[in-house]
Nucleic acid binder design. Structure first.
Lengths: 198, 198, 198, 198
DNA sequence: AATGAATGAGGTTTCATTCAT
DNA sequence: GATGAATGAAACCTCATTCAT
């Protein structure tokens, strides 16, 4: 990739970051192209140089967010660790990413409302892939005899829901730090799975 | 209340129901007054007879939703039941209400973004009241020795998060019915609390 | 139709007239919704109350123009006159309409560029219908032995082209009046057809 | 002219050709600098190296088109031929040029709308010059006794209108070739003029 | 010479809101 | 009470134009 292309790529990422943070704060529809541009001291026009339309920017943002999240947990998922520790680590990574980026997976509307056709497919597939890592970790734990025989999909949704909700209530002013909270939540959630919790 | 007032009150509720269901589907900003009116075969002009503005309608809707939800779980909370069963019943009621109304507590944006001043206070207080019922149930369970000593607020948020997430993934086409799911989830979540799960 | 509907219908026609005259002056793309509204002392917003979008307004305008033109020449076409006189009258009507409305059939772009699918079909069919009246008149003249055996479609296009071009060069300041011009042109064009011109 | 200048001149012509064909297809306002550049695998930035602005490009294009057209018919006009044949040949050249370049003299708007001052004058003069050749041919025919005494300007406009309309209806898929059509049309139009048509 | 990037003016469109009837 | 009509602010988006490289 040429220097130019690299620069352009970097700019796109900057815009995406800006978009993600504002969308996660206000929701998709309340976020204006002006908002996104202004945060980067750009004009709307420039944003349109990089993205076809708002829809496109949303899609690219959502895609990047999911891809980063996937890359993020893959760091742990492929390590050689016992299932419990692995799931624990994965959950913690998920929550810390969530909080530090202040960026949830939600956009203030169902994906079905925001995307159509191929775009929707792409997003759903990435979500699927992400979820599957959790499912696999749970499954492994069951096979290893450490987890109980539970409804994998259901429990995975419980876990994701509990974690993602953090973005709604977390405040840096609280008595517990981000990490402490993540660890605590992870521990509580593991109790659903572990055969013989202490 | 005169007959006229009663009629007006009924109409207001109808509008609120319409608003709630569409907002929960599309998010606040994507929902137009037109949408809300059209669902009731009204014109948007009429809606303004009953509500000062969109903001007002949103506020009243959210308030009613929370008040109904509170009334809803109060049916169980004040019964004479052991804590485990009570919490179990409360969670199930919460989830069934969620699904049957297809109406989450989220509006596609943070309450802080949508409300200001007094309105915000009212809403936060109602949320607080709702949450407190869960906190109290948990506390009672701990005092009775049935639940472990856990961080009440944290676990309550885990529970609410896990339950509310249902609206994102629940589909009536699934193999389990709404009730079966609610029961299963409730059971899983109780494992976080119960001292000696079977 | 209720009084209200009638009024609305009248308003739509007003807007269409405004649109037609400006579009015929400036071309479709150079004509702004603002222009159209301003000419009627309305705001853009109001225009959108009556027409879905600019495209829609263009389509309705073009349709009305063609329908009016058709109705216009039908007044003569169905009369009981010898072919030569009939064609003569029809051409004159065509030209006088053109000039008095200062509204050509052209919109500054090919219909294929402006319309798609059904809309395009509708427009082309109306054009076809209009052309066919000319073709029929010519055909009748040939059958009656008054016109020569010529390529009907070709000659019809010559006639239409020659007439429509008027809008490009006609000026009220010229030495001949609108009617005189129309008659003169009609006479010249008939020479192409008539077997034995004096 | 230096080699460099020649190259630049050639590039300008390429751009003009591109502009002409797109403008004649879409109309001036719907044609973007991007369109024009893209057709030549250039970027719009480059076009600005050769032309001051869009206006300028339009003017140069229109000027070149008219100059070429004039040079085009001058090939015949100055030949030594009887008036009828000369006018016939001129018309045919006009039509063939029109079709082969797929470029009419119209730009989707009146020249008065697009040009101002000097530019407008230049264009109108060239148009005038072009028209005058037709007028002169007709006049010659009248003086030679081959054409009837008609309103020269009027008939010239009929002829131009009929010919230029071709671009609206001509399709290469038709049963007659471009040349056959041009000849047929020319013949029909001559009937308006010739004293004693066979 | 050429181009990628940026800009801003202006156009289209949406929608909460108002109001006369 | 209800509604059709109108409005204007604000959003999205396009594109001619400029400019540093």
């Amino acid at each position: 990739m040429s220097l130019r292309q690299k620069k352009a790529e970097k700019k796109k990422e900057e815009i995406i970051q800006s978009a993600l943070s504002i969308i996660s704060e206000k929701g998709y529809h309340a976020t204006t192209m002006e908002d996104i541009a202004a945060k980067l001291l750009m004009t709307k026009g420039s944003v349109y140089y990089y993205f076809k339309d708002k829809q496109d920017l949303l899609f690219e943002s959502q895609k990047m967010l999911l891809e980063q999240s996937i890359a993020n947990i893959e760091k742990v998922v492929f390590e050689d660790l016992p299932p419990v520790e692995k799931l624990d680590a994965t959950m913690i990574i998920h929550m810390e990413y969530l909080i530090s980026e202040r960026t949830g997976f939600t956009m203030g509307a169902r994906p079905e409302q925001l995307f159509a056709e191929e775009q929707l497919n792409d997003i759903l597939e990435l979500r699927e892939k992400y979820s599957k890592y959790f499912d696999d970790l749970i499954k492994q734990g069951i096979e290893d005899g450490e987890f109980m025989e539970i409804d994998i999909r259901l429990v995975r949704n419980i876990i994701l829901g509990a974690m993602n909700y953090m973005i709604d209530w977390y405040s840096p002013k609280g008595s517990k730090s981000k990490s402490e909270l993540a660890e605590a939540i992870s521990n509580y959630l593991l109790r659903i799975l572990i055969k013989d919790p202490k």
